[in-house]
């Protein structure tokens, strides 16, 4: 083995240690709830907590609504920009990047000012209205990821020709989007969806400022009040994120028509 190769392995080992040691440490700590021996008590406590179940269910529901909203907004927009307004692409890209540039606190306060009980559209006046506002806020937060994922997907297919082919066969816009474009960018839509899922699940500022029972505020609350449970919760959150990543690659592999491309 040459010395340069040894150094490559050393660098690789250091990198792996840098990422894995905190995780291992956290996992090990999460097992120490019972004095003197390892146990899954912290996990049992977290999973048995009704507040965990309600906040998790709430955030999962919000994530699904956000994904649906994001796809409904982004897919037709990205499709139309590619088909008819390619010159506007840099502008649309810039707009979708804004949620990354403007702090979430600012967006959340802006929303609260715009939609408070004394405004024309008093969304914060009811629970359902606040939920709608939160979903809209999450959808805007997920825009940079959703738009980029879908736009990259659209780049891999010949959008104008496929659209014209479908039109010449009698298809209207809804059929073209639903049966021609969406199935061909499904992998990209799903990767955008899973990123959105991960963002919504961990989001704190929006949910806290709008006072909704989401998973993000619960994690913050529990880390201030318990010792071992936050570590167990963090491990669970990691597991969910990794499961999402795994699903992305699984879905993109199982799509029959894309096998030749990969």
């Amino acid at each position: 083995m040459t010395s340069s190769r040894i150094w490559s392995w050393v660098a690789f080992g250091l990198g792996v240690a840098y990422f894995l040691l905190p995780l291992v440490g956290m996992f090990e700590f999460s097992l120490r709830a019972r004095r003197g021996e390892y146990s899954f008590d912290a996990y049992a406590s977290v999973l048995g907590d009704p507040q965990f179940r309600t906040t998790f269910a709430y955030s999962v529901t919000m994530a699904l609504v956000t994904i649906l909203l994001g796809v409904l907004i982004v897919l037709p927009t990205a499709f139309w920009v590619r088909l008819r307004m390619p010159r506007l692409r840099p502008l649309v890209e810039f707009i979708t990047l804004l949620p990354l540039v403007i702090p979430v606190v600012v967006i959340a306060f802006g929303y609260i000012r715009l939609y408070n009980t004394s405004s024309i559209l008093p969304l914060t006046g009811s629970v359902m209205g606040t939920n709608v506002l939160l979903a809209l806020g999450y959808a805007s937060l997920s825009l940079p990821y959703m738009y980029r994922a879908i736009d990259t997907g659209l780049r891999t297919i010949d959008v104008p020709t496929l659209t014209e082919a479908a039109q010449s066969l009698g298809a209207g816009w809804a059929t073209i989007l639903g049966r021609v474009i969406l199935p061909n960018v499904l992998g990209a839509v799903l990767s955008g969806a899973f990123l959105t899922f991960a963002i919504v699940l961990g989001e704190y500022v929006f949910a806290a400022l709008l006072n909704r029972p989401a998973f993000g505020p619960y994690m913050v609350w529990i880390s201030g009040n318990r010792a071992y449970e936050p570590a167990a919760l963090a491990v669970i959150a990691f597991a969910i994120t990794w499961a999402c990543m795994g699903l992305i690659s699984l879905v993109s592999r199982t799509q029959k028509h894309t096998r030749a491309r990969s």
């Binding site: 297919i157 010949d158 020709t161 496929l162 014209e164 082919a165 479908a166 039109q167 010449s168 066969l169 009698g170 298809a171 209207g172 021609v180 061909n184 028509h257 894309t258």
Partner: peptide
Amino acid sequence: NQRNIGMVFQAYALFP
């Protein structure tokens, strides 16, 4: 989509 005119394209344009 209302004309009932069939078209074949240079790039095939089959739905993948």
